[in-house]
């Protein structure tokens, strides 16, 4: 009976993995199809949709914009979030627990609600520039990922090492930079990766903030899927998937996937 149960659970697990990968594999298959319609099975193999990407200007612009926004917002969150996390961990500020919850709370709010709040606030404050509005909003989106991983890393860090560096003549900022930063690098890598993905993949917040000329990749992709779905969309999606896998492998080499996911 117990054997039967464990066999059943394993079957379900196998089924789940196939199920989860189906849409991803379908996108990969379609991107190599020789036909412009999405028939299954595809009639032949070709790389023409990848070749056509070179001319997809609006798509490439969107990729570039999303990359910039994701990289900049992750970098800003890393700096602001880490400084805050140090103050929280060291008990420098009162109500540390409340502050930590506050800094991580954008993750708990529905994305659309955040997006609407940013849209209204940008209007009320007279912030017209799409790029900076997007960037500010994405710092808020990425902050919780940084806070969670950096707080977890700092809880294992021995601050006596910073004091030691100061006694040996380093200034406080220099001590943080040379002792603390290398020690919690794994936290930075995994938090930064998730923050980057969260920003790069964000739809519900960005949809309220983009304009006709400035569109992030998810918005541009969804537009294309709704208007004129063709395998070019599949080709760019396939490249995105491969890029993500490459990033995961690099980060796995640096810090280990298990550790990344557990935080």
């Amino acid at each position: 009976m117990a054997l039967f149960g464990s066999l059943f659970c394993r079957l379900v697990l196998g089924f789940v993995i196939v199920f989860l990968f189906l849409p991803i594999l379908i996108v990969l298959t379609v991107s190599f199809s020789s036909s412009a319609v999405f028939a299954f099975p595809p009639p032949g193999f070709s790389l023409r949709w990848y070749a056509s990407l070179a001319n997809a200007d609006s798509m490439l612009q969107a990729v570039w914009l999303s990359t910039q926004i994701a990289a900049l917002s992750t970098a800003i969150s890393l700096v602001l979030g880490t400084l805050c996390a140090i103050a929280i961990t060291r008990g420098m500020i009162p109500g540390a627990k409340v502050v930590a919850t506050f800094m991580a709370s954008p993750l708990m709010l529905p994305g659309l609600v955040l997006g609407i709040a940013f849209l209204q606030a940008a209007r009320d404050f007279g912030l017209r520039d799409t790029y900076s509005t997007l960037l500010i909003a994405h710092v808020v989106i990425t902050m919780p990922f940084i806070m969670r991983t950096v707080l977890a890393s700092l809880s294992l860090f021995d601050f006596a090492m910073v004091d030691a560096a100061r006694m040996l003549g380093r200034s406080y900022p220099a001590a943080l930079w040379t002792v603390l930063v290398p020690n919690i690098l794994p936290g930075f890598v995994s938090g930064g990766l998730f923050a980057f993905i969260a920003s790069f993949d964000n739809y519900p917040v960005s949809i309220f903030l983009v304009d006709v000329r400035t569109k992030t990749l998810p918005i541009q992709l969804l537009n294309q899927v709704e208007m004129s779905p063709d395998p070019t969309v599949a080709a760019i999606s396939a490249l995105l998937i491969l890029g993500t896998i490459a990033a995961l492998i690099v980060c796995d080499r640096l810090v280990g996937l298990k550790r990344m996911a557990s935080i």
Partner: peptide, 28 residues
């Protein structure tokens, strides 16, 4: 574990696009 975790990192727009292809009359 990696196989369960990996789909999480793929864009929701991409996955939903894949789903709409699967659901077509001539889909899988």
């Amino acid at each position: 574990f990696a196989l369960i975790f990996l789909p999480l990192t793929v864009s929701i727009v991409v996955k939903t696009f894949g789903l709409t292809i699967m659901m077509r009359r001539d889909g899988i």
